[in-house]
Structures are given as C-alpha cells and as structure tokens.
Computed example of a mutant assay.
Amino acid sequence: MKYQIELKDDVLFIRLQEDLIAGPLTQQLLAGVDEQVDNNVLLCAIDLSNIRFMDSSGMGVLVSLLTKFRNRGGELVLIKPSDHIRKLLIVTKLNAIFTIAENDEYASQFLKESIY
C-alpha cells in the first residue's frame, strides 16, 4: 500500500493506492492520522479510487480510522471506491456506517456540514 496525506481546508485527505492490507505502512498511516487528530483535525476523506484489493485487515483500518474521528466529534467519508471495494462494503454491511462521496468537493462539503 502507498498513501499520501494532505490537509486542505481543515479536511484531512488520505489518498490510498494499490492494496489495502496490513503491513508496516498501515501502522505508519495510523500513526500519522493519530498525530493529525491530536492536532484537532476532525474531518477526514479517504480516497479509495486507486485501491485494487482490500482484505479484512484493510477493512479494520477503515473502521479504526472512522472510530478515531467520530470519538473526537468528527467525521470520515470514503471517496469513490471501485466497484470491487463497494461490493465488499455491501457484503460486510460496512456500507451502512460509511458515507461514500464521488469526488473531493462532495466529500469536503458533506464533512463540513456534518459538524455544524
């Protein structure tokens, strides 16, 4: 898994690539997010458009990130998951807890409206 983190207009954008599975980069990502949350960043959008594969540990990462933000009064959305990832979210019923946005603008607008 590769990732990029960008803070734009009070929204933390995380852009993931390749496969979302457990590994050293996953722990590095979680630590980086913890640092942002500790700095009172409450809104997060995770771009899944370039994720090819996700296993159960990858789903656990998404749930963990969602929990971090909601426990602080924030919110998280997923941006444009592929059809394969959408099907996984439906099968696991995680589609009931995640909001899905089709682009950065919608994600940012939804997040800002969710806390005001």
Rank of each mutant, 00 (worst) to 15 (best):
residue 56 S to Q: 10
residue 26 T to R: 13
residue 24 P to M: 10
residue 22 A to D: 14
residue 25 L to Q: 14
residue 34 D to A: 09
residue 85 I to M: 03
residue 20 L to P: 02
residue 3 Y to M: 08
residue 42 L to G: 09
residue 56 S to L: 06
residue 92 T to Y: 04
residue 65 L to Y: 10
residue 28 Q to C: 08
residue 11 V to I: 12
residue 106 Y to K: 08
residue 38 D to F: 13
residue 51 I to L: 10
residue 44 C to P: 04
residue 3 Y to T: 01
residue 11 V to R: 00
residue 67 T to P: 06
residue 104 D to R: 09
residue 54 M to D: 00
residue 39 N to G: 12
residue 81 P to G: 06
residue 41 V to M: 05
residue 47 D to G: 09
residue 28 Q to T: 11
residue 98 F to E: 05
residue 5 I to A: 06
residue 104 D to N: 14
residue 28 Q to M: 10
residue 40 N to S: 06
residue 21 I to S: 06
residue 13 F to A: 09
residue 63 V to K: 02
residue 53 F to M: 05
residue 71 N to K: 14
residue 60 G to D: 07
residue 70 R to N: 13
residue 97 I to G: 05
residue 65 L to R: 13
residue 37 V to I: 14
residue 92 T to E: 01
residue 111 L to I: 07
residue 8 K to M: 11
residue 21 I to L: 15
residue 35 E to H: 09
residue 43 L to C: 06
residue 108 S to W: 00
residue 89 L to S: 01
residue 90 I to Y: 00
residue 36 Q to C: 10
residue 26 T to H: 10
residue 12 L to Q: 02
residue 83 D to Q: 13
residue 102 E to V: 11
residue 58 G to C: 06
residue 6 E to H: 14
residue 91 V to L: 15
residue 102 E to Y: 06
residue 113 E to D: 15
residue 71 N to A: 11
residue 34 D to S: 13
residue 87 K to E: 13
residue 70 R to E: 14
residue 102 E to P: 00
residue 72 R to P: 09
residue 71 N to H: 12
residue 46 I to S: 05
residue 35 E to L: 08
residue 13 F to I: 10
residue 19 D to G: 00
residue 64 S to H: 11
residue 91 V to F: 11
residue 42 L to S: 08
residue 114 S to I: 01
residue 23 G to S: 03
residue 14 I to G: 07
residue 42 L to Y: 08
residue 96 A to V: 09
residue 77 V to M: 12
residue 13 F to V: 08
residue 13 F to Q: 07
residue 81 P to K: 01
residue 19 D to Q: 09
residue 102 E to T: 12
residue 15 R to V: 12
residue 6 E to T: 11
residue 38 D to H: 12
residue 27 Q to N: 15
residue 88 L to P: 02
residue 100 I to L: 12
residue 65 L to I: 13
residue 91 V to G: 02
residue 76 L to R: 02
residue 59 M to Q: 13
residue 111 L to M: 11
residue 93 K to M: 01
residue 56 S to H: 07
residue 64 S to P: 07
residue 36 Q to R: 11
residue 16 L to R: 01
residue 17 Q to W: 06
residue 104 D to S: 11
residue 61 V to K: 01
residue 59 M to R: 03
residue 98 F to G: 04
residue 105 E to I: 05
residue 79 I to S: 00
residue 69 F to A: 03
residue 20 L to H: 03
residue 95 N to P: 04
residue 19 D to R: 08
residue 92 T to C: 01
residue 38 D to K: 15
residue 85 I to C: 00
residue 52 R to I: 02
residue 59 M to T: 02
residue 46 I to L: 15
residue 63 V to I: 15
residue 38 D to I: 08
residue 66 L to I: 09
residue 54 M to Y: 00
residue 16 L to C: 12
residue 89 L to N: 03
residue 80 K to M: 11
residue 66 L to E: 04
residue 107 A to W: 03
residue 73 G to C: 01
residue 45 A to T: 11
residue 1 M to R: 00
residue 69 F to M: 10
residue 66 L to C: 04
residue 82 S to Y: 10
residue 4 Q to N: 14
